[in-house]
Amino acid sequence: MKALTAVPAYDVEARADRLSALAVRALIEEARLSPKPGLVDSRGAGAHRDLSLDLMERSALSLQPTFYRLALHSWLRPADGALRQEIGRLGREGEQQMMAATDGVNTHRGAIWALGLLVSASAMLGGRGSVAFIAAAAAQLASLPDPFSPKNFSKGQRAVQRYRVPGARDEAVEGFPHVVGRALPQLHRSRRQGADESQARLDALMAIMCTLTDTCVLNRGGMPALNAMHRGALAVLAAGGAATPAGRDALAELERRMLQDNASPGGAADLLAATIFLDWVSA
């Protein structure tokens, strides 16, 4: 990687603006991607009663200032306790802005965590890091304690405790293995095999859903729903992915099962948005 050098303040602001715009665009393109099993997409609300595509897009747009501030405050800084506390504070402020924009509906709390870390990590590297360097920097940040983090457990944290499975923090501390080791390789492989961009992204989503212990699914359907998600996503890829008739049939079957279980893989959706973001910033 090239040595990082100082850049004018106006250029830093422009680069921070670019990172924030890419993060918001990744959230919007993830939301619009169809057909996603159990998730909000361009067809409808999936397994949700309180969400819509319009709400997801409004939520994503409300987060642009948060991602911008995360990038600006992280620019060329080392991963230390001071930065960790600062991004924690900015992330919590972003959650409040999101809740105000959605009238109290939690649309992107998990995405603020995942994409917020990756935006900060990209800025720490001057906006020029490879996937491996960005993921490693994000892992360094995630592993640091934030003494001001709320003590009340989220639904995801309760599922982690109840089922004794890895959660969103573990994914980040480990350097986003479902993004770096599964989704991005599948995205690139599907493109090489002739899939269009939507099909390649659906395959990347399936690669995440094959093994992710998605706490959103666990909260709604327990272990039976999570196991069904793993089997169904694997069946889509084994059938050739979303670009093939057999793969699309398997995807439709997975959707039927997830709607039956009232399960929505929100954690996988957050990681797909992270995948799209990293695909762009490392290009």
Rank of each mutant, 00 (worst) to 15 (best):
V7P: 12
A9N: 05
V12I: 15
A16F: 11
R18D: 13
L19G: 01
R25P: 13
L27P: 12
E30K: 06
R32D: 05
K36L: 14
P37K: 03
G38R: 03
L39N: 06
S42H: 09
G46P: 08
A47G: 04
L51R: 07
L51D: 07
L51E: 02
S52W: 03
L53D: 08
D54T: 12
L55E: 14
M56K: 08
M56R: 13
Q64W: 14
T66S: 10
S74L: 11
W75E: 09
W75V: 10
L76F: 12
A82W: 07
R84K: 09
G88I: 03
G91E: 00
R92W: 11
Q97V: 01
A100D: 11
A101I: 13
A101Y: 09
I112L: 10
I112T: 04
A114P: 02
L115V: 14
V119Q: 00
S120N: 01
S120Q: 00
A121L: 13
G126W: 02
G126N: 05
G127Q: 05
S130M: 06
V131D: 00
V131Y: 00
A132M: 12
A137M: 04
A142W: 01
L144R: 06
P147M: 15
F153R: 15
Q157Y: 13
R158T: 07
V165I: 12
P166N: 05
P166E: 01
E171A: 01
E171V: 03
E171G: 05
E171K: 02
E174P: 00
E174M: 07
V179S: 01
G181H: 04
R182E: 02
A183V: 11
A183W: 04
L184K: 03
R189L: 15
R191T: 14
R192H: 15
Q193I: 09
G194L: 01
G194I: 02
G194T: 05
A195T: 04
A195H: 12
S198F: 07
S198A: 14
S198D: 13
Q199K: 08
R201T: 03
L205C: 08
L205P: 02
L205I: 12
T211S: 09
L212S: 11
D214S: 10
D214A: 02
D214H: 13
L218V: 15
G221Q: 03
A225R: 01
L237H: 07
A239P: 06
G241S: 12
G241A: 08
A242C: 12
A242N: 06
G247K: 12
E255S: 13
Q260C: 06
D270S: 09
L272G: 01
D279M: 00
D279F: 00
D279A: 14
